[in-house]
């Protein structure tokens, strides 16, 4: 899932200090599961902001709501009638949700209350570890199911580099070398030939936002619009 962490309180206070009536908008999906921006975290932020502003003699009127998802229009539409009552919106969704909210209400200042931190696994309640950087060209099939883009400090598609050091990465003894782990796993599976497969360079430069259109879901009737 997408994980995020709550922004420092001071930063949120500073971003929103000039607004007197603010709607806090949580998201009930990924950021709720990772305990950063769901209903509960909205309530905590509301209490913090209300108290913080009162202490600074700059009281604020707050509304709170948590949408099922902020990356889906049908849920954002639930705010169409109420958003106009507020001077600003604060979103606790991931960066995608925040932008979609801002796009829906282009006349309202929209502020992020979380920092989106990537795609992660759930190791335990409140403990998440990044595993994928959504590179768009997955090589897990030849890397023993270990992502070199995320787990290797240099994001090498063809590794290891010359710095690999008895299982550790050259950046630190505490950081496992991803390509060493890939080697170990492929070796255990009897698939070491995979490590010799050459992955062509990824076109990181000149990237534009990617659009995903699933086959079978195209709408030919809209092609001309």
């Amino acid at each position: 899932m997408i994980v995020a962490k709550r922004k420092p309180f001071d930063e949120i206070m500073d971003l929103t200090k000039d607004y007197k009536k603010i709607l806090l908008v949580g998201c009930g999906t990924c950021v709720a599961v990772c305990l950063a921006g769901g209903e509960k975290e909205v309530a905590v932020l509301a209490a913090e902001l209300e108290m913080g502003r009162r202490l600074q003699d700059n009281p604020v009127e707050l509304g709170s709501t948590t949408l099922e998802r902020q990356c889906d229009r049908e849920y954002l539409a639930q705010l169409d009638k109420t958003a106009g009552d507020y001077d600003a919106l604060v979103s606790m969704a991931c960066g995608v949700g925040i932008q979609f909210l801002a796009e829906r209400f282009p006349n309202k200042p929209v502020f992020p209350a979380v920092d989106t931190c990537g795609l992660a696994v759930n190791q335990d309640v409140g403990w998440y570890e990044e595993r994928c950087r959504s590179c768009g060209r997955c090589v897990l099939g030849i890397t023993g199911g270990i992502c070199p883009v995320t787990m290797c400090a240099k994001g090498l598609y063809n590794g290891p580099c010359g710095g690999t050091n008895k299982g550790s990465c050259e950046i630190s003894a505490d950081q496992p070398c991803a390509w060493n782990a890939i080697y170990d796993r492929l070796k255990a599976q009897g698939r070491l030939d995979c490590i010799l497969a050459f992955s062509p360079p990824q076109e990181w430069k000149d990237t534009t936002p990617r659009t995903l259109l699933q086959p079978g879901y195209k709408k030919p009737e809209k092609a001309k619009a």
């Binding site: 007197k20 009536k21 209300e50 108290m51 502003r53 009162r54 202490l55 003699d57 009281p59 604020v60 009127e61 707050l62």
Partner: peptide
């Protein structure tokens, strides 16, 4: 509690 003396926003 210092909040007790502070007026609320509506």
């Amino acid at each position: 509690n210092p909040l007790k003396k502070k007026p609320k926003g509506n």
